[in-house]
Design a protein around this nucleic acid. Structure first.
Length: 271
DNA sequence: ATGGGCACCTGGCTGC
DNA sequence: TGCAGCCAGGTGCCCA
């Protein structure tokens, strides 16, 4: 899924339905997710009130009275708010049942998602502890991206998908940000000049913000908390557009595989 | 420390 | 129609 804009869209959709509510039950129908759902999790969270719905990178954080649920949507996961009694469908693995009667239902065909719980500070959790700064916060800027690209031989596209260095950018928005910054995805990170790093930092922020505004990008599985798709797909410049004319210069968009992921770029606009 | 490759899993599509 | 092969919004871990 789910890159930062899709998780943020989910967070916003879920928030009004869960904050202030008490958890009636956590029903785990399929515990075999990326990380096996702990057998005692339902007992640990039942009865707790949801205080806040936050996000860190691509994790949705449901802050409870005595701990925090860390929810990751993996590649194909979605969370929807559904009325009581909605019949379960294929790949509906987990239900967070609230005292309103509504259910927060997790569907994930590929089961790369996860539901974790920590009673400590979420940022101290092993999976969150070494994440890079939030791209939409102040700490992520031209200077930051310049510093982390220094000395790196890895391709810039792979660097901006490395969550220890940049967070929230997945395969779609990596190609899109590089197009906007007019930088070729295969360039070694260390060859970026300072103005290019600055341009890329701005492009990452811009594309993520614009995608959040559009409710994210739906290609296959993703839907928001109310079941509606994201509309950013219409605004993609290069992703899944191999062979189609560049929306800026009409040159056919190219595709290649980088680090086992498809990468798209315009050979004319990007250098 | 850095970088590359694999693994986890299901489903949809293409082409023979 | 069947089936093999490839592809898909992520990311932790192992190895060189």
């Amino acid at each position: 899924m789910p890159e930062l804009p899709e998780v943020e869209t989910t967070r916003r959709g879920v928030e009004p339905h869960v904050v202030g509510r008490r958890i009636r039950a956590l029903a785990v129908h399929e515990p075999r997710l990326r990380w096996r759902v702990e057998a005692d999790l339902p007992a640990r969270v039942a009865g707790q009130r949801v205080l806040r719905a936050g996000r860190r990178a691509k994790y949705l954080l449901l802050e409870l009275e005595r701990g925090t649920l860390l929810w990751h949507l993996g590649m194909s996961g979605s969370l929807r708010v559904l009325p009581a009694g909605t019949p379960r469908g294929r790949h509906d693995h987990v239900d967070l049942v609230l005292d309103s009667g509504a259910s927060l239902r997790f569907n994930d065909p590929r089961r790369f998602g996860s539901v974790l719980y920590t009673t400590g500070a979420p940022d101290a959790h092993p999976l969150l502890a070494s994440l890079a700064p939030e791209p939409l916060d102040g700490a992520f800027d031209a200077g930051y991206l310049w510093r982390v690209t220094r000395g790196r031989r890895v391709a810039i596209k792979q660097l901006i998908m490395n969550s220890r260095l940049v967070v929230g950018v997945g395969n779609i928005y990596a190609s899109e940000a590089l197009f906007r910054a007019r930088i070729r995805p295969g360039r070694a990170a260390r060859t970026l000049q300072a103005p290019e790093a600055a341009h890329l930092a701005r492009a990452i922020r811009a594309v993520l913000s614009a995608a959040v505004k559009a409710g994210g990008t739906t290609l296959r599985d993703y839907v928001g908390a109310d079941g509606s798709p994201g509309y950013f797909r219409q605004k993609l410049y290069v992703y899944e557009r191999a062979g189609l004319p560049c929306r800026r210069c009409r040159t056919p968009i190219r595709r290649r595989v980088q680090g086992q992921r498809a990468t798209y770029w315009c050979p004319e606009c990007q250098h």
